[in-house]
Simulated scan of single mutants.
Amino acid sequence: MIFIVVKFKTKPEWTDRWLDLVGPFTAATRAEDGNLWFDWSRSVDDPTEFVLVEAFRDQAAGGAHVASPHFKTAMNELPQALASTPKIISQTIDATDWSDMGEMTVG
């Protein structure tokens, strides 16, 4: 799978509207055939920082995502709300889903 984590630092005036701004992009990406997940979180240390954790089945699915109209629209619309260039980690890993955490078992 292609496993990606991106940190987005928003302008303060956009922070409360960020999830609305990325809403259509999020919905369209989650509907893609090869998308495994596309989940947003907010930093507990910096309220203007949002973290996106996403995964795609394989390189082809990731490539289709980057070539999609909604990706291109997002790349044009999102920068207006950002204070800096997003930071990304993108890796191909040998997994198909989340694994249980071995160090902690519940139930």
Rank of each mutant, 00 (worst) to 15 (best):
99 S>A: 14
43 S>I: 12
32 E>Q: 12
46 D>A: 10
68 S>K: 07
66 V>P: 03
107 G>D: 10
57 R>P: 06
39 D>P: 00
60 A>E: 15
79 P>K: 09
91 Q>G: 01
93 I>S: 01
9 K>F: 05
101 M>T: 10
64 A>M: 08
32 E>C: 03
97 D>F: 06
68 S>P: 13
50 F>M: 05
89 I>V: 15
92 T>Y: 06
97 D>E: 14
77 E>I: 15
96 T>A: 06
1 M>H: 09
38 F>N: 00
70 H>S: 07
106 V>E: 02
96 T>H: 04
60 A>L: 11
54 E>L: 04
57 R>E: 11
45 D>L: 10
17 R>A: 08
68 S>G: 11
18 W>I: 00
95 A>V: 05
5 V>E: 04
85 T>E: 11
15 T>Q: 15
17 R>S: 08
51 V>C: 07
55 A>D: 01
78 L>K: 03
21 L>I: 15
102 G>R: 06
51 V>T: 14
31 A>L: 12
17 R>P: 04
23 G>K: 14
1 M>R: 00
72 K>E: 13
53 V>D: 05
31 A>K: 15
67 A>D: 06
6 V>D: 06
74 A>Y: 05
63 G>E: 11
85 T>G: 01
21 L>P: 10
76 N>V: 03
49 E>P: 02
20 D>V: 10
89 I>T: 15
25 F>E: 05
41 S>P: 01
89 I>M: 13
96 T>D: 00
77 E>G: 07
54 E>C: 02
86 P>V: 01
21 L>E: 14
2 I>E: 00
39 D>S: 00
80 Q>S: 13
57 R>G: 09
40 W>E: 02
2 I>F: 12
15 T>R: 15
79 P>Q: 14
41 S>C: 09
85 T>S: 07
15 T>F: 07
19 L>C: 05
50 F>W: 06
13 E>G: 14
32 E>P: 06
75 M>Y: 01
67 A>H: 02
53 V>P: 02
40 W>T: 05
98 W>R: 12
5 V>Q: 08
35 N>M: 14
72 K>L: 12
103 E>C: 13
73 T>A: 13
6 V>A: 13
38 F>E: 06
51 V>D: 04
24 P>S: 11
52 L>W: 06
65 H>D: 02
5 V>C: 00
95 A>G: 01
22 V>F: 04
80 Q>D: 14
62 G>I: 00
34 G>L: 00
